[in-house]
Design a protein around this nucleic acid. Structure first.
Lengths: 349, 349
DNA sequence: CTGAAAGCGCTTACAG
DNA sequence: CTGAAAGCGCTTACAG
């Protein structure tokens, strides 16, 4: 660690931890049984107003807080939801986490965060093991290609909802954006603006969301009776550099496109640089549209037109699905939610 | 929720949850006592190789996984660290979370995430109550002005490390960036480039890090024997708009600065827009430097020179401090870590 | 409306 | 090297 310590300071008072007060202590002080204390706590059984008041006062005076583990051991419920995220450094996941927290916290659920760090599947396996061992009430899994992990969770009897895995072959609750429609809507938007020669810079085609966004482009072009030309299809790797290179190639053509649908914002920002480098004005010479609405999309000049994926809402929906599933238990029916995207028209189109 | 459901599909198999296998069951199947099973699990007592092998095989066959709550109830340890973050939507916090996870996960600790959602203190109080109730082994608190919450945690006997609270009056472990030096180093950088007329756009001055960054500016100007002129000090609110406005005012002066230290990147990006709007070339007419190194800093054109705060390292340091504190118990000495920032020289200076 | 007692699934002195 | 038993702090039939 390249940190420098500034040494110690010794002003602190070190009170020993307060004596842990148990339900037993409360019962004694209130002159009732543990049973009764437990019931004023849970409300599972009527307690006379007078007794209740007395017990509550004692709890307050003693600062009683029921032991979470003892409760969980009895109820066999952890009130904890695990979120396994692909890469928390990607703003999509924090927003997802926030929505999830919002949806489940009023049910007294807390979220346990696992960040796979954009790494390989090994970490995810470990996280799933943790979630099982800690008896999570449910897990939201926002990592792709993890059917085996999902299966393990279900064997352990833990409800799962997958995010962004319309791709999963497993019967399971999931919520995702409609990537194919996102792409189609982006193309429609360009078409409405008068563009006919529309290119695309795709992501990797073997995975979600690269593939559905590509298919959406194709579908829209066909629906609009626009010719799909192989020269108008460039492949990127989600990165700014790959977007730059792809756009440079398109710009160099004598029959260059008048508009480009980029499958994400990073590539679109790269494309923006390349366009200007090639002396093309945006949007006059080429219009550009991305997907995601990352922070930088609105900070860049000209500000990027893009399709926003409501990550927070996805998190909220995932939380609601999970709560349902927890309440219902495993059944044979599964819910799927497609969350609505929104077109953010800015300056590049 | 503005989502549309696509209905249900009914392909799933709904295997009932596997019968929970206990230590008792393992003991029976292996022909030993629970005591022995417990010890092969914990390694707290020698077990003959032969017995150990047999028990381990049974555990494997039965898919035994010890009940986390029963363990926690006995050991009085949750192996859980709570992270209370100001606003997980701000990229600083996810990076912090990642560093924290990295530091504590090899000690079998898991992180419980609480996102205060940039909201007021009420939520933080609730989170602290949760952390206490769930018997977190420790908490990292990355919210400012929460001395009362910190006090409650200490009363409950829970170790705390604060992030970014050099400001706290409490004797406590903390880790933070050296905001005053960050500002001073930024000014030094501009000075080295030949600038003498250096302005600043500050953040709010009543809090960390607005105040220390302002003080660092003052200190550096004095150290460099540069005059501190009130006209060269503009106050912003961390936002892009406030940066824009502040820069517009500076640009309008006949004695405008040749360089501006902006206390964060958002304001610097606003300043960049304003400078160009005023017909000033960056960095030829005005040089600009920010703080944070948000994603957009390198995506904007010209790319923003800034000072990077290593959030992930802060998280890692906080995790290490916390682990220490958990191991040592409350003592009267406290550790403080100042994490090293790094100058990212790009195109605006 | 209230209690005594069994039980949740582990760990850990105590004893051999 | 191994076990029987008490105990961690709750919840919940069962009984009154």
């Amino acid at each position: 660690m390249s940190a420098r310590k500034t040494g110690l300071d010794a002003t602190g008072d070190a009170r020993p931890a307060a004596a842990p007060v148990t339900i037993q202590a409360v019962a004694a002080a209130a002159g009732v049984s543990k049973t009764t204390v437990s019931h004023v706590l849970s409300g599972n059984r009527p307690v006379s107003a007078e007794t209740r008041r007395r017990v509550e006062k004692v709890m307050d005076d003693l600062g009683f807080s029921p032991n979470f583990f003892a409760q969980a051991l009895n109820r066999n419920r952890s009130n904890t939801i695990a979120l396994i995220a692909q890469d928390i450094t990607n703003p999509f996941y924090p927003a997802l986490a926030r929505g999830l927290q919002a949806a489940v916290s009023n049910q007294d659920q807390v979220v346990m965060l696992f960040d796979a760090g954009a790494g390989e599947g090994a970490l995810t396996h470990a996280f799933v093991a943790d979630a099982i061992q800690r008896r999570a009430d449910g897990v939201v899994i926002a990592v792709s290609d993890v059917d085996d992990d999902i299966a393990r969770l279900r064997e352990a009897g833990i409800p799962v909802v997958a995010v962004g895995s319309g791709a999963s072959k497993l019967p399971i609750d999931w919520v995702t954006a409609d990537d194919e429609r996102i792409a189609a809507d982006a193309v429609m938007h360009l078409h409405l603006l008068g563009h006919r020669r529309i290119a695309t810079i795709t992501g990797p085609l073997n995975h979600t969301p690269g593939k559905p966004r590509y298919l959406g482009y194709l579908r829209a072009m066909q629906d609009l009776d626009l010719p799909v030309e192989p020269e108008m299809i460039e492949h990127g790797e989600w990165t700014r550099e790959s977007g730059f290179d792809a756009m440079a190639r398109l710009a160099a053509r004598h029959d260059r496109p008048s508009a480009v649908f980029c499958a994400n914002d990073m590539m679109a920002i790269g494309a923006l640089d390349a366009a200007r480098r090639s002396g093309l004005a945006v949007p006059e010479d080429v219009a550009l549209i991305g997907v995601d609405d990352i922070d930088a999309a609105s900070l860049v000049r000209p500000a990027l037109t893009t399709v926003r994926i409501p990550a927070e809402e996805i998190g909220r929906a995932a939380g609601e699905l999970l709560l349902h599933r927890i309440a219902e238990g495993m059944t044979t029916t599964h819910r799927h939610v497609l969350v609505q995207h929104v077109l953010m028209t800015r300056e590049t189109s």
